[in-house]
């Protein structure tokens, strides 16, 4: 590994100062579970690292007027065990629980997961599901941008080098039930081959509102609006589930085209959807 300078600011202001001074040559270090690997493989060679894990203002989860705000340097372990997350947006807890291994979950952060912009980032489908908005801050000011716009392809984002992702703001539907499921090559320490997240609001036996997001079938996780439109207003029964699964299969087939993984994934999505709906069914009763 090459030599790099290391800074450990304790406030957001200090961090922003460093990022502005470092221009494009400084890089933010959160849990390091992606970045350290990239340094080793020499995919990136920054002059300095700005470690944000000692900035207490970048940690924590709170609820504010129906919105749930997650600070960027919050770890997967913290998210997965948060009462707010478990109660209001369980899909995100599902996702954070299956990231890597306990060590990775104790170290890796939500912010790092977003900014790394992997197609298979586990938390991202669940964040996108709840209309996640990223709040970006720099010395120049602050802006908010939808995650789906922030993510610009594999490993690409709209973040400027002097910007810090401060938090993500989620807007779940009031009273919704949600779930996430990931299919990997094995049960732990495996990246998602396909993942999905679904949020439903029930009105009696009917689905009043629906959101669906998918991961690992496109350059970035995305909202499957066709599936959402189909679900809106439907009865929540076997027939709807089977139709949803059929539509999901078509959608995945469309997205993947002639990729080598397509024949498997376009069928396996059925199992992923089934599992998510099972989770929602179980949670709905509670």
């Amino acid at each position: 590994m090459q030599k790099v300078d290391y800074f450990r600011p304790e406030t957001i202001e200090e961090a922003l100062e460093l990022l502005a001074a470092g221009r494009e040559e400084y890089k933010i270090l959160a849990g390091g579970t992606d970045l350290v690997l990239h340094l080793r493989e020499r995919k990136v060679s920054p002059k300095a690292l700005v470690d944000i894990t000692h900035i207490s203002a970048l940690k924590g989860i709170r609820e504010e007027e129906g919105k749930i705000i997650i600070k960027a340097a919050t770890t997967f372990t913290e998210v997965a065990s948060s009462t707010i997350v478990l109660e209001k947006i369980p899909a995100l807890a599902d996702a954070c629980k299956v990231v890597g291994s306990p060590q990775i979950r104790n170290q890796g952060t939500i912010g790092g997961n977003i900014v790394n912009a992997s197609p298979a980032a586990d938390s991202v489908p669940a964040l996108v599901l709840f209309d996640g908005v990223a709040r970006l801050t720099s010395k120049r000011g602050t802006r908010e941008i939808l995650l789906t716009e922030l993510l610009q392809g594999v490993g690409k984002t709209a973040i400027e080098p002097d910007e810090l992702l401060e938090e993500v703001i989620l807007t779940p539907y009031p009273g919704s039930v949600s779930g996430f499921y990931k299919l990997g090559r094995r049960n732990a320490l495996a990246i998602a081959r396909i993942s999905g997240a679904v949020e439903l609001v029930f009105a009696g036996s009917k689905i009043a509102k629906a959101r669906v997001a998918l991961g690992s079938v496109a350059p970035n996780p995305f909202r499957a609006t066709e599936l959402e439109q189909f679900l809106n207003g439907r009865e929540f029964n076997e027939e709807t589930k089977e139709e949803l699964i059929a539509l999901a299969k078509n959608l995945v087939a469309d997205k993947l085209g002639s990729r080598a993984s397509a024949p498997y994934k376009r069928e396996a999505i059925a199992g992923v959807m089934r599992e998510i709906l099972n989770r929602i069914e179980q949670r709905r009763g509670r």
């Binding site: 069928e267 396996a268 199992g271 089934r274």
Partner: peptide, 14 residues
Amino acid sequence: VQAVDIEVDVDTGK
């Protein structure tokens, strides 16, 4: 001898 009890996911093949 070993005897196993398995569950197969029909959709994912897991």
